[in-house]
C-alpha cells in the first residue's frame, strides 16, 4: 500500500503549485484554475486523513468543498465573461481603472 505521507506530499505540492500560480500568472482564468488546484489539494488531504483515521467525515467534507467551489465557478466565470465583453482581455495587469 502506498504510505499516507506520499499522498500528503502530493497534496502539499499541489497546494504550493496553486498558490504560486495565483501569484505568478496574469490571466484571470489561469489564476482561477490555480485556485481550484488549491481547493483540490485540500480535498486530497481530507481524503488522505479520512483514510488514515478510518472515518467518513473527511470524505464528506470533500463534497462540501466541491459544492462550494462549483458555486464560486458560477459567479467567477460570469464576472470574467462580463469583463471580457467590455475589455476584450482578461489580463489582470490591464485592469488599471482603479489605480491612482
Amino acid at each position: 500500500m502506498v504510505p499516507i505521507e506520499y499522498y500528503l506530499i502530493l497534496s502539499v505540492v499541489l497546494f504550493a503549485m496553486g498558490a504560486a500560480g495565483v501569484l505568478a500568472r496574469r490571466n484571470a482564468l489561469i489564476i482561477f484554475m490555480s485556485i481550484e488546484l488549491m481547493l483540490n489539494a485540500a480535498n486530497l488531504a481530507f481524503v488522505t486523513f479520512a483514510r488514515q483515521y478510518g472515518q467518513l467525515d473527511g470524505q464528506v467534507f470533500v463534497f462540501f468543498v466541491i459544492a462550494a467551489a462549483a458555486a464560486e465557478v458560477a459567479v467567477g466565470l460570469a464576472l470574467i465573461v462580463m469583463i471580457f465583453r467590455s475589455k476584450h482581455s482578461i489580463d489582470v495587469d490591464q485592469m488599471s481603472s482603479l489605480r491612482e
Binding site: S11, I35, M38, A42, A45, A68
Partner: peptide, 11 residues
C-alpha cells in the same frame, strides 16, 4: 484565494 487557504488549513 483566501478560501483556498482556509480549506487547506481546515484539512
Amino acid at each position: 484565494f483566501a478560501g483556498g487557504f482556509v480549506v487547506y488549513g481546515i484539512a
